[in-house]
Amino acid sequence: MAIDAATVRKVARLARIAEPEARIEPLAREISGIMDWIEQLSEVDIEGVEPMTSAVSRPAPLRDDVVTEGGDPERILANAPRRAGDFFVVPKVVE
């Protein structure tokens, strides 16, 4: 199915990627090409098939809900683009 420019803009917004206007039409073409190729999946009979969500067919392990690590702000903040004391500095969230 054809992906149009409006869909690309919407999806780019959802993905929080600022795509320049000049890229919208080329992306629509590229993604349409890929989705057309993917369309062949509709040929497969999937009646009654359970979706495969993991390559490991065992139950997820459980552990006690206790703190195992922490109390080390220096390591956590070591790559912060901006920090103030033991806090990340981020753009204003609430006007």
């Binding site: 993905a15 929080r16 990627i17 600022a18 795509e19 320049p20 912060a80 683009p81 981020v90 204003k92």
Partner: peptide, 22 residues
Amino acid sequence: GMRYGLRAEASGLTDTYEKSRA
């Protein structure tokens, strides 16, 4: 762009996300 990795300078939160990722 908040806790690590590239952060682009932009005016608000959403613009910062979108520009950093772009």
